[in-house]
Every structure is written in structure tokens, then in C-alpha cells.
Design a protein around this nucleic acid. Structure first.
Length: 308
DNA sequence: CTCCAGGGATGAT
DNA sequence: ATCATCCATGGA
């Protein structure tokens, strides 16, 4: 068990903000994997307590002994200058509310293949269902790990999925996404798509490369850029963000021109536009949930008398 | 039951 | 270049 200082960080918010989908809350702790390393993570104020899944009697397989703090701090991006990030946001009512409700939310550094594969599975799926798909892929194709009398699974490698079949993947249940996931797994596994090498590309070239992969369009490409390539300016636009943009920033437009919207977002939200996007996304979802709860509790649920 | 979800590929204008 | 349609599935 190790302890890591983590000021200006909210573990629960970060793991529940729709950027990563495999962490499971067990009592006060979160169980999951960082790459191939199974860990339990718990936050106590400004400190993270972490237990990893390597047997104590064995030497640590990779990296220097005691490298765990660095692995954890890097994964949760504890080095991101969050104060500077938030200060860079424009001063408008929507973003001010989001900035307030998302305090401590960080955009983490995910493994590239894991992030890419997961977001290929995300299209037209609710967050809860993406979690279910991630879990199914891990349980069926990943490596089983035991830690503290609990079980978790690593995310399967591209090669492992490339060696599977569409029928096997469809049991996860991916639906029409299985074909795309399989095709992309084969490209990555064969080396035709060099995810690590693409780190050196510019934003424009990286986005172009990602969009050539089956099942990857502008939205998924931007998610992968933001969550796995640390391109903090990438601005994924999903249905939630599109709603925020149309209602809050383009209230008079009857239709949004995609090109103009992107130009606006890049200029208006600035250097850390991806962070602004994530805060707007999470804030909108939390608001929606509490609104739903309010109408369920106090709203007049008009149940019209049933006819017949 | 219906509606909707961190969209993309394809074919028609 | 922009627009409409289809794609599977399950939670709300």
C-alpha cells in the first residue's frame, strides 16, 4: 500500500465523467487496471491510497521497484496545471457553472489501444452501456487478476481481439460495432496502424490517421486524441455537447454549420478546449440527472385516467 | 410500450 | 460538400 499526494483532484468525479469506463466502486475504493496493472485506489482528502495487485513476494515485473507512485500519478494526470486550465476558460455563465461543479475533475492519460477500442464501442450508446461492453470485453478476452480477494480483468490487446471472431465479439454485445472493432484490431495488431508512433504527429495529421480506422469518425477521433494522446485542445462533439452549444452558445441559429461550430469552439474555448468540453459534458449530465430526480420527486406527474 | 444513447458508413442530392 | 438512413442493443 502506497500513499500519493493528490491536491486539486477528485477521483470519483474523474472516474464517473464518461472518459473511462471500467472502474468499479467497491465501498470507498475503486477497483480497476492501469494498463496491465490491477489496483485499488481510494481518495482521502488530498491523498490517494493505492494497493497494486502484484504479489508482495515477487519482484515487480516491469519498471523500477517503487515505480507505482509514478504510474498512478501519470495515469491520473496529477501534473496537469488544473488551476491554469480552469483560469484559461472563458468567463461565461455556462462555463462558470461547469467549472464549479467539476472541481478536481482531470482528463486522465489512458492507454491508446484501450481508449480507441472502447470509444469505437461507444457510438450511440449510453455511458452505462459502454461500461457493460467494456466489462464484457475484459471478462471474455482480458487477463484475470486477483487483488485483495477481488477479481478484475485487463483490457485485451489488439492482437487478442484480432484473433477472435465477429461472432465472439458480438456476444459482448457490440451489435454492429463488432465489425469495426475487429477490423481496427487487425490494423493495429498488424502494425499497419502504429498507435504509439502516431504520438509524434500534429493534431491535424493524428486526427486524419485515426479517422481512417473503421468505426472512427471525427467524434471518436477527438475523444482518443483528448483521452489517450493528451491533445488537450481536441473538442469531441457528441449529442450532449451539441445540445449545450445550440442552447447556450448558438440560441438563435436554426441550424449549426459544423465547420463554423468547430472554428468557434477552438477560438472561444482556447488552449484547453478539451478540458472545457469535458467540464461542459459532465456538468450537463449531472444537471440532467438531478432534474430528472426533481421531476420524479416533486413534479406533477400527470397520470391521465386510463381509458378502457 | 416508446425514446434515446459520448456516431459512423453509405448513398442520394 | 451537405443530408437522410440504417445500423443493434438495453437503460430510462
Amino acid at each position: 500500500m502506497i500513499t500519493i499526494p493528490a491536491p486539486d483532484f477528485d477521483l470519483a468525479k474523474t472516474l464517473d465523467s464518461g472518459q473511462v469506463f471500467h472502474w468499479e466502486k467497491i465501498d470507498k475504493r475503486f477497483l480497476g487496471t492501469i494498463g496491465d496493472l490491477p489496483v485499488f485506489v481510494e481518495q482521502n482528502g488530498n491523498v490517494l491510497k493505492v494497493r497494486d495487485g502484484r504479489p508482495q513476494s515477487l519482484p515487480q515485473a516491469h519498471g523500477e521497484p517503487g515505480a507505482l507512485p509514478g504510474i498512478v500519478a501519470n495515469y491520473f494526470a496529477l501534473d496537469h496545471p488544473l488551476a491554469e486550465v480552469c483560469a484559461s476558460f472563458p468567463n461565461d455563465p455556462v462555463l462558470n457553472a461547469a467549472r464549479n461543479s467539476c472541481r478536481g475533475l482531470r482528463i486522465i492519460r489512458q492507454p491508446k489501444w484501450e481508449c480507441l477500442a472502447t470509444f469505437i464501442c461507444s457510438s450511440m450508446k449510453q455511458v452505462a452501456h459502454i461500461r457493460q461492453i467494456s466489462k464484457a470485453l475484459r471478462e471474455r478476452f482480458g487477463r484475470r487478476c486477483e487483488i485483495d480477494h477481488h477479481v478484475t480483468y485487463t483490457f485485451p490487446s489488439a492482437r487478442r481481439l484480432a484473433e477472435s471472431s465477429k461472432a465472439e465479439l458480438e456476444r459482448c454485445p457490440l451489435g454492429y460495432r463488432a465489425k469495426n472493432l475487429l477490423a481496427t484490431a487487425r490494423l493495429v495488431s498488424s502494425g499497419k496502424a502504429d498507435l504509439e508512433g502516431w504520438s509524434a504527429l500534429s493534431d491535424v495529421d493524428l486526427r486524419k490517421k485515426l479517422c481512417e480506422l473503421p468505426g472512427v469518425g471525427p467524434k471518436v477521433a477527438n475523444c482518443v486524441m483528448l483521452f489517450a494522446y493528451e491533445r488537450l485542445r481536441a473538442f469531441p462533439i457528441d449529442v450532449w455537447i451539441e445540445r449545450v452549444l445550440t442552447e447556450q452558445y448558438f440560441p438563435r441559429a436554426r441550424r449549426l454549420n459544423a465547420r463554423q461550430v468547430l472554428e468557434f469552439c477552438d477560438a472561444y474555448f482556447g488552449k484547453y478546449a478539451g478540458y472545457a468540453q469535458q467540464y461542459l459534458f459532465h456538468h450537463a449530465r449531472v444537471e440532467s440527472k438531478s432534474k430528472g430526480k426533481r421531476t420524479r420527486l416533486t413534479g406533477q406527474v400527470v397520470s391521465s385516467p386510463r381509458l378502457g
